[in-house]
Design a protein around this nucleic acid. Structure first.
Length: 572
DNA sequence: GCCGTTTTCGGCCCGACTGTTTTCAGTCG
């Protein structure tokens, strides 16, 4: 059983316990465990098999949860969950996705009206049986009825790049308003999460009502969900919820820290404050009644003798351990990237010529690019055979001879064949500067078989990196299954790199994958797999995800010059 | 259910908004 499956199981247990009205801290223990296991860089099955390691060493996993994880790994079953599901039908959990309807009221609906599905709930609302219940009323009934539509499409998250567009539009609308002294986006958007569920904005203003009036007139607004003295929430016509919070200037730092989260990060932070007899809220840091910080985020963290963590790592995963050890390592930044090592041209399925791609990369400040068109097996993408590849390399030589101010490397994206062999002969690979190997065919093979094929490619002396190592970039459907940890171990053994392929809509090797690579000491290459000039822009999304995974410049191979990288790869 | 320089019990982050109440519980982030 994979970490993601175990996490999903614990989340379901938490939902059911919450529904039953169990001790909220017990519920939180399951939620924490789900998050921690989901973020684990190692598969827990591996940890269980390792005599040196213990599950209870993971923060938040005690004796009981360790036993439950063991049971899940051994039997794929959890007796406790089965017991819960025999008491409560799984379908009632859908009710928890209705905004404004939590476990307490959902339990009442189930207990008093026997509602088990969203359809039954709609019927109960329409026949006005809901407003008769104690604690409910006509308004609540209407809210629920409205929310049923949302619940069926709930869980919808937006890709960061999409959310970025919404954010820029809102900022462009809000910033010129007289009432707005300052506005900043916060939340998971600011933390650079791969997907964003809703947007949070923080505003400094003297007259909150004027800000909210302006916000209420935003052209993209569909309707207002809530509005109070300092807080307002709207839904956009595209379905995205936007929260706005107005604060005074002297609380700006505390509020920005608070609304950036993550929630787990804030819980740890407030716990640390409490240990020191201090209190943190969105207005500031307090010792007794006295405010001792709040103007800036730096000040808030400094009051607890902590560094101002970059937003991307505020997930209570490793940042507090980092801070204990000393100054934070410098995370990799877009400016650190010197070359892009995966892109296509009109020689195979790219839209721009070799020269256009090189010039566009140069304008982005890159010093080198590897042109990595497909190999012959990828026929429909116009993959190159040995002869065509050598022809392309003649063109590359000719281009480089003009001293264009950027170095173009002779590369190829070579298929790992269905049977496990390489699509190109070793003699031609030996002439290449940069070979990335990838799985395009036989994606439905078993996890073991695909893992074996990739590990086999890592043994080839001319292969430099594995492209789209988790298969997420290849298809909009389910990616292939692979044992990423085994692949990374093999990469370490053979001194190879792992690619993080970035694309605005999908990323291959996510933040957790980066954490795994870092733990195992495998160098990551952030590259775009660009098929057009605009595709090169995706580098920023890749860097953002690498930062979330805690990677520094030293962890990322293409922050080095090509000369240094070549030396490291043992070439020339 | 977890955790422990207040360690085996008694804590566990904290405040805003809503709707239902008439002082507050539920929900959300």
């Amino acid at each position: 059983m994979t970490n993601a499956e175990i996490a999903a199981t614990f989340d379901q247990v938490a939902d059911l316990l919450e529904f039953k009205g169990e001790n909220p801290f017990r519920v939180r223990a399951y939620r924490n465990a789900a998050r921690t296991i989901g973020d684990q860089p190692r598969q827990v099955a591996e940890i269980l098999a390792d005599p040196q390691a213990k599950l209870t060493d993971i923060a938040g996993i005690g004796k009981d949860l360790a036993e439950k994880i063991q049971a899940l790994v051994d039997t794929r079953k959890l007796p406790m969950l089965e017991e819960l599901l025999s008491e409560i039908p799984e379908s009632v959990l859908a009710m928890l996705r209705i905004p404004g309807l939590g476990p307490k009221r959902a339990a009442v609906l189930y207990r008093e009206l026997g509602v088990t599905t969203l359809d039954e709930l709609r019927e109960a609302c329409q026949s006005h049986r809901v407003q008769e219940l104690k604690g409910f009323g006509a308004k609540m009934e209407a809210t629920i009825l409205d929310g049923i539509g949302i619940a069926s499409e709930a869980g919808q998250r937006f890709l960061w790049a999409e959310a970025d567009q919404f954010v820029q539009d809102i900022l462009a609308y809000m910033r010129p308003a007289k009432a707005v002294a300052r506005i900043e986006p916060a939340g998971s958007y600011r933390r650079g999460k791969e997907t964003v569920g809703d947007l949070d904005f923080l505003v400094v203003a003297d007259h909150p009502a004027a800000v909210m009036d302006h916000f209420a007139a935003y052209p993209g607004r569909e309707h207002t969900l809530a509005r109070g003295g300092t807080k307002m929430a709207i839904r956009l016509t595209n379905g995205c919820q936007v929260d706005l919070r107005v604060v005074a200037g002297e609380s700006f730092g505390a509020a920005l820290q608070y609304f950036t989260g993550s929630q787990a990060h804030n819980i740890v932070l407030r716990g640390l404050a409490k240990d020191r007899k201090m209190k943190i809220n969105e207005y500031g840091v307090f010792r007794g009644e006295r405010q001792i910080a709040g103007l800036t985020e730096e000040e808030v963290y400094a009051s607890l003798e902590l560094p101002c963590f970059p937003p991307e790592i505020r997930e209570a995963r490793f940042e507090f351990q980092w801070a204990e050890k000393g100054p934070l390592p410098e995370l990799v930044a877009l400016d650190d990237i010197r070359g892009d090592l995966h892109m296509h041209t009109t020689w195979s399925d790219g839209l721009a010529t070799l020269e256009e791609m090189a010039e566009a990369a140069k304008r982005r400040g890159l010093k080198y690019v590897a042109v990595t068109d497909h190999s012959k097996r990828t026929m429909m993408a116009g993959g190159l055979d040995e002869r065509r590849l050598r022809e392309q390399w003649v063109e590359i030589d000719r281009y480089n001879a003009r001293r264009p101010g950027i170095t173009v490397l002779k590369g190829v994206e070579m298929d790992i064949l269905e049977q496990g062999g390489m699509d190109l002969a070793d003699d031609v690979l030996a002439e290449a500067d940069w070979v990335v190997a990838s799985v395009h065919f036989g994606q439905r093979q078993s996890r073991e078989r695909i893992t074996e094929r990739i590990i086999n490619a890592l043994k080839n002396p001319y292969v430099c990196a594995i492209a789209h190592p988790t298969g997420r970039l290849l298809t909009r459907r389910k990616p292939y299954e692979v044992d990423l940890e085994a692949v990374l171990r093999a990469a370490r053994e053979h001194g190879k790199c792992m690619e993080l392929n970035a694309h605005p809509s999908r990323l291959d090797l996510d933040d957790v994958g980066c954490m795994m690579a870092q733990n195992l000491g495998v160098a990551v290459v952030i590259s775009t797999d660009a098929h057009s000039i605009d595709g090169l822009e995706a580098m920023r999304y890749g860097v953002q995800q690498a930062r979330r995974g805690g990677l520094t410049g030293a962890d990322v191979a293409n922050t080095r010059s090509w000369t240094q990288l070549k030396k490291r790869l043992g070439k020339g």
